[in-house]
């Protein structure tokens, strides 16, 4: 799919609906964990050029906290749960009182973030599995705090695929108010995109 960056409207609509189903389940799970309403906005389905991967997060060097998971099974890809340091600390302190203070993130905070990513991904993927009858299993969550591009470039470093554009199902996560607190990205590999779209009854992208 190198050089191709038109997404068929029908394919985009169906993937967005799929993203909605996943996000709905993930938001419910996170609301229960945090005892506070969490909203996930209607997902954007777009093809992002590799050079612009970090633009939604404030640029290549902006400091973010990220949970990364690989998706394995019938549909393969990568997932990222990314937020600013301030949002990450707020999230941690709402799970563990007293944590999330100070400059860095404590070991407990680190594992809390990983667990939140895990819960989001597992719920998101299980909703997608119920809907598509395809197997999608998350790997163990890995956590990193660093420059946005240094982390997200992994989405373009899958040697099985070549492409300057990645399909991303991008969901903004809102906590309490209208402010955008976090982002949830699913990058299916190009072959996984075909598998997904076929399972949903349409031919494929392009």
């Amino acid at each position: 799919m190198a050089g191709t960056y038109q997404l068929e409207t029908q394919a985009a609509d169906i993937l967005r609906e799929l993203g909605n189903i996943g996000a709905g389940h993930a938001a419910t799970a996170l609301s229960e964990l945090l005892h506070t309403p969490i909203a996930m906005r209607v997902p954007q389905v777009e093809l992002i050029p590799q050079d612009e991967i970090s633009s939604v997060l404030g640029g290549p060097e902006s400091l973010v906290a990220c949970v990364f998971l690989q998706v394995m099974g019938d549909v393969e890809g990568t997932m990222f749960f990314v937020q600013s340091m301030a949002s990450a600390k707020q999230l941690i302190s709402s799970i563990w009182d007293g944590e999330g203070q100070g400059d860095g993130i404590s070991e407990i905070g680190w594992s809390a973030l990983g667990e939140v990513g895990n819960i989001l991904a597992a719920n998101y993927l299980s909703a997608l599995m119920d809907f598509t009858h395809l197997r999608m299993l998350p790997s163990v969550p890995l956590v990193a705090v660093d420059m946005a591009q240094a982390i997200l470039s992994i989405a373009f470093q899958d040697e099985r695929t070549e492409g300057r554009y990645a399909l991303v199902i991008h969901t903004a996560v809102h906590h309490r108010d209208e402010q955008e607190d976090a982002h949830f990205f699913l990058f299916p590999t190009p072959s996984a995109q075909d598998v997904l779209l076929r399972a949903l009854g349409i031919g494929g992208i392009v």
Partner: peptide, 23 residues
């Protein structure tokens, strides 16, 4: 210099690339 890009320059100029992770 963006991701997956390259440039050359000379003299008092400088070349910069941002956010190298495993790149």
């Amino acid at each position: 210099v963006g991701m997956a890009d390259a440039k050359v320059a000379r003299g008092s100029d400088a070349l910069r690339t941002l956010g190298l992770g495993s790149c």
